[in-house]
Amino acid sequence: MNSIESTKYRKRLEEGGVPPQQALAHADALGEVLENLKETLATKDWVRAEISRQLQDLKIDLLKWMFTMFIAQTGITIGTVIALIRYLPH
C-alpha cells in the first residue's frame, strides 16, 4: 500500500470514529501485510513457468511409459509366436 492509499485509509478510519493513533496503527499494519502479500502471491509468469515445467515432466513420464509398454508388448508378441510355433502340431 503506498502512502497515498495509506493516508486515505487512515482518514476513512478516523471519519468512522477510530482514534487517530489507532487509525495510524491500522494503516501501517495493513501496509505491511500488503507488502508481504506482494512477495508471496503467484504471478502470471510464475504460473506459466510452473505449468510449462509440469507439462514437460508429464511428457517425459508419458514417453517412458509408452516405451516400456512397447517393449513389453513386443516381448509378449514374440513369446506368443515362439510358443505357437513350438507347441502347434506341424
Rank of each mutant, 00 (worst) to 15 (best):
E14G: 04
Q21H: 15
A42V: 01
Q56P: 00
Q21M: 15
A27W: 03
D57K: 14
I71P: 01
S52C: 06
D61P: 01
G79A: 04
L41P: 00
L34E: 02
I78H: 01
Q54F: 10
A49V: 03
I4W: 13
I60A: 10
L88Y: 09
A27V: 07
L24Y: 14
I51L: 15
K38H: 00
G31Q: 08
V18F: 09
T7W: 06
L58A: 12
T7I: 11
L58K: 12
D28W: 11
Y87C: 06
E35T: 03
G31E: 09
G75P: 00
D61H: 13
K8Y: 14
T77F: 08
K64C: 10
A25L: 13
F67D: 14
K8I: 14
M66C: 05
L63E: 14
R53K: 11
I51N: 09
R10V: 09
A49Y: 05
V33C: 01
N36K: 02
K59A: 12
P20F: 14
I78A: 05
Y9Q: 04
P20V: 10
L30A: 11
Y87L: 12
M66Q: 15
E14H: 06
I60W: 09
D45L: 10
L88E: 09
G31R: 07
L24W: 14
E5Q: 13
I76D: 03
E35M: 03
E50C: 07
A83L: 06
I71D: 08
E15M: 03
R86G: 02
L62I: 13
I4L: 11
W65Q: 15
A49I: 05
T80D: 01
I82V: 07
L37Y: 01
I76M: 04
R12H: 12
T77R: 02
Q56R: 06
G16N: 09
T80E: 02
T68Y: 08
I82S: 08
Q56N: 07
L34W: 00
L84Y: 04
A49S: 13
L88S: 10
V81Y: 05
I76Q: 01
Y9L: 15
F67H: 12
T68G: 07
L24P: 08
I85G: 05
A25P: 06
Q22C: 09
A25I: 11
A83E: 02
T74D: 03
A27L: 04
G17C: 03
I60S: 12
I76H: 00
L63A: 11
T68Q: 11
R86C: 08
T77W: 03
T68V: 11
L63C: 06
A25V: 08
S52N: 11
L13N: 05
D28P: 01
D28H: 14
K44A: 10
P20I: 10
H26P: 03
L62K: 11
F70E: 10
M69Y: 12
K64W: 10
